[in-house]
Nucleic acid binder design. Sequence first.
DNA 1: AAAACATTTCAATAACTATTGAAATGTGAA
DNA 2: TTCACATTTCAATAGTTATTGAAATGTTTT
Lengths: 120, 120
Amino acid sequence: MKKHDAVATLAALAQDSRLDVFRLLVEAGPDGMLAGQVAAALGLPPNTLTFHFDRLREAGLVTVRREGRSMIYAARFETMHALVAYLTDHCCQGRPELCKPGPGNATRLSAARKPERVSG
Amino acid sequence: MKKHDAVATLAALAQDSRLDVFRLLVEAGPDGMLAGQVAAALGLPPNTLTFHFDRLREAGLVTVRREGRSMIYAARFETMHALVAYLTDHCCQGRPELCKPGPGNATRLSAARKPERVSG
DNA sequence: AAAACATTTCAATAACTATTGAAATGTGAA
DNA sequence: TTCACATTTCAATAGTTATTGAAATGTTTT
């Protein structure tokens, strides 16, 4: 995955309704869901939903196919995994044990906040 | 991780310069980098960089600490891993083998493109 | 204390994104 | 062929985000 694609994929997911849509489709699995089912599940108007489906599709995160009058959307897990790989690759200068998930590796939280401006 | 945080984290990463910054810090590892080093590596003006650091920090993706006149920024791997978990959790109605990465699981690409409008 | 340095703040502007109502398209049923 | 249904397109608008120059802050050196 190239940087441009990674940004597009992240942008596609960085929106309330779209994240809901995508996670619903991830939960649904490879068979996907009817557009109307998604609309009903999330309470989104059909034109708004089309707009968001388009963004997800352009980012390669979902596929569509027609079935009768309905459209069936499904998550593309491949893209999701590629994004994860893009984010986590090359970490820690070749010593990935420094940033692997799990216990015993809690990030130092003492520096989580920005040192506040003091004077005025 | 809650939905609101996931959207914030994704939005923080969904921008060219910020994705560059974050990946540079991921590569640098837990010790982080001087703000000036990041600016030099990416060719960003300092005020622009501050803007992006702020977004990354608000999303919990980086920490800052001061050292002399410099600020040292470091990636927060914990947040990155939480995001990945948020995206991939609950997939495929409890049958995660359907969406795990790896060969033998290529997504059906036949439906990757939207059926085009035909008439005019 | 003054100068130099690294970074942040502020205010203005340009560019992008989401939402909506109304109309159109493609498909299936009567 | 007419009607109903599911979804998409279009155009307008409101809201958000990135970038920039100029000024300010906090720290170290002289």
